[in-house]
Design a protein around this nucleic acid. Sequence first.
DNA 1: AGAATTGACGCAAACGATTGCAAGACAATC
DNA 2: GATTGTCTTGCAATCGTTTGCGTCAATTCT
Lengths: 342, 342
Amino acid sequence: MKKQTQTLRDIARETGVHVSTVSRALNPSNGALITDDLVDKIKAAAERLGYRPNRLAAGLRTNRTMTVGLMIPDITNTIFPPILRGVESVLEPLGYAVIMVNTDSLASRETLLVDVLRERGVDGIIHAAVLRDDPKIIEVARAGTPVVTVNRKIEAEGIPAVVNDDGLGVRLVLSHLHEQGHRRIAHIAGPENLSTGRFRRKSFEDAVARMGLPLPPEGVIQSARFDEAEGWRCAEQLLDDWNPTAILCANDRLALGAIQFLKDRGIDCPRQISVTGYNDMPYLDRLRPGLTTVRIELFGVGQESARLLVRMMTDPEATAPSEMVLPVTLIKRGSVGPPPAD
Amino acid sequence: MKKQTQTLRDIARETGVHVSTVSRALNPSNGALITDDLVDKIKAAAERLGYRPNRLAAGLRTNRTMTVGLMIPDITNTIFPPILRGVESVLEPLGYAVIMVNTDSLASRETLLVDVLRERGVDGIIHAAVLRDDPKIIEVARAGTPVVTVNRKIEAEGIPAVVNDDGLGVRLVLSHLHEQGHRRIAHIAGPENLSTGRFRRKSFEDAVARMGLPLPPEGVIQSARFDEAEGWRCAEQLLDDWNPTAILCANDRLALGAIQFLKDRGIDCPRQISVTGYNDMPYLDRLRPGLTTVRIELFGVGQESARLLVRMMTDPEATAPSEMVLPVTLIKRGSVGPPPAD
DNA sequence: AGAATTGACGCAAACGATTGCAAGACAATC
DNA sequence: GATTGTCTTGCAATCGTTTGCGTCAATTCT
């Protein structure tokens, strides 16, 4: 039976040269000169034996494993798979593999998982987690591991960030609602400990103020999680305390919950109250009413963050842009209409 | 500035013992006896220095990296994230990390990615790819790497499989349609080169025959991909050639496409034609009509396959069950009704 | 033609952990 | 008191690659 895996030594024996020569012949990048026909001979032998380099051994020696870590809150959340594919689409052709971990937005898991990645010697980390304060990742970045964050910026730490233009997204929705005639616009905000929740809320409040719209404290409800149940609960509380004609939700799932609440109460959306989401999850167009929302660049975010990381990994001296913001687009569907005549 | 990473040697120097002693103190599992207070002292030093083992080095020596590979067609497909979480839920507490790769159901990528995984020394592979003939994975399994497949069995190769009971699922749908009074039931089959497509088709044809229902050749349309566009196309072809009262689709996306076609043609579902899906994708209950479908155990499939793999990795001699089939449940929603009186 | 330069390859030391074996300390046995 | 045995720890090889340096032959220069 064939040996489990072939090594450089096997090729060396086969071709009658030293293993270092084989190594150099197979990696022209290290600048060593090996005669062309010897290179051919060695490559042929490698091919014939089915040689596959042992990256553990190489990584041990070089401190580069051609592996990167990707930290996300939860792959089950529909926005993350496209990001992952985007990351993979640039990393894989370059020979990198990615180890993905789900943090569930828990600080404890986050610190744990950072170690899981570092023990495996990842060359860099793409950090798509959304926790506002993440102790460990900053430490890792300081220690020299390339890190790029997506969808959140870590304040004043020099960690590059790839983000969608949330400020613009919120303004687009708001203008759309305003054009339709809405004046009392409420907000169901995302969890306070998540950067997206926080930032969209601030964008909303700023924009509303600038537009001169009324916004009593009851006009913004804080959700505890980005899910439908919370959307339902927040919508209920909102209508108990105020009488908005439109609800701008911090993400699609909250919006779905809110719409469900309206339906359960017999309130027509959009005829009586308009609702908007954020993210443009798949299949939203098939719902009734279709959800007006903001489409964010997911695949693109993944790609850009990976490109940035590659730059940092291959040239540690290069100064990476500290922030990269990607465009968003408003998607108009049925959940927004003019407010009731009243 | 602190050194990048601490090694066994650093702890050894710190505590005045040999590195082998440190290694043994930190891994009680290898059976060596070290005095308790020395162990405490070493552990304290390790803690103090923030020691993290270098799994590359350990893996090089032991041939175990505590890393497993997960091969799936496309994480963007909603059925895979829950599987991944299931896998992770059992693997991560045991100290394993998972490298995930997307094959896009391409044989070429599959062989490529198997190598990506093996170069990194994965201890085992969970193969959730659905290609019917996969040359490379069999070779890998033969070479001694533990492999378990999910959602497909590789015939007569001794590779354990974790599957959902597709036969049962198809029969459940069929009985439901039959009870509602349907007799002319058509099938939009999944791609022929994917095992799920193939198997569900066979299950459908067998069950229909056993129930004594009519099934002309035009009653089964072969799709080329598991997507909405194909569902639309196949539905069109189906209605051109036959006049079924119900369409059983091989998965939800095909069903969504089919329903869309009916809608575009002004044909009412379910009043004129009933449609069923398979998989129970998220948010299907929010559509109009809600899609009657089969719910399969995704998280459970992930868990079971991971458990199986762990058994194989830790005890290579143990004979693993060759097949593990998980239950499915019929989910009744609005897309099925009695056939028109006609 | 002899010296200096270059080119092509071999040698051996790393990288950090694991582990069979040897060795020393100490207690128990005859 | 010498011998045997048990416990604990040290020694050194090993996993597969990479890479600085040395060496030898072939080439070029004076």
